[in-house]
């Protein structure tokens, strides 16, 4: 039986590396903002002009979207659709799956182009794949929540009750 509590843990060092890659992608692609979302709908990192968009909603809807298109892909005998592009009147959104595990979302307008975004995303994906493969290897090696002290190891009933007070 698979354990439901396979916790996905990210440490500062890894988030730092991820951030560097998407910061570079933002520059290189001339995008407005970039988000990296976990397939379960959790925001991992973002960069650029992110203030005007509700990041939590974006993460959840992106993951829902990828899950639904993944279902569609399976239905027609594909593994997944790795890339999606939605064109708006002003802003466009480019969504791609990285390392089968995380979702890279790039929002851009006429200051960039689909061709440029595509090209730069490809390069960034490779860099991100390396990082997430390292994370996976580390998880396998030590069990996900070991290593750094898990903040929940010492949690008490009172701590939990206080959350709701």
């Amino acid at each position: 039986m698979l354990n439901t509590q396979t916790t996905f843990v990210l440490y500062e060092e890894e988030v730092g590396k991820v951030k560097e890659v998407i910061d570079n992608l933002l520059d290189a692609s001339n995008a407005k903002s970039i988000y990296l979302v976990d397939k379960n709908g959790q925001m991992i990192a973002s960069t650029g002009n992110v203030a005007e968009i509700d990041a939590t909603s974006l993460a959840s809807l992106t993951a829902g979207n990828i899950a639904a298109t993944g279902g569609l892909a399976k239905l027609i005998g594909e593994k997944e659709f790795a890339i999606q592009f939605h064109e708006g009147e002003k802003d466009n959104i480019h969504i791609s799956i990285v390392s089968s595990r995380v979702i890279l979302v790039v929002i851009f307008d006429q200051r960039s182009s689909l061709g440029l975004v595509r090209l730069r995303v490809k390069k960034a994906s490779n860099a991100l794949t390396v990082i997430f493969d390292e994370i996976s290897a580390k998880e396998k090696a030590q069990g996900s929540t070991q290593g750094m002290a898990n903040p929940f190891a010492e949690i008490t009933d009172d701590d939990i009750d206080n959350l709701f007070s």
Partner: peptide, 15 residues
């Protein structure tokens, strides 16, 4: 799958 982010000191759970 809960998600612990040490960089932002957040933990996310899905219900």
């Amino acid at each position: 799958m809960s998600f612990i982010n040490y960089a932002s000191r957040e933990i996310n759970c899905k219900i």
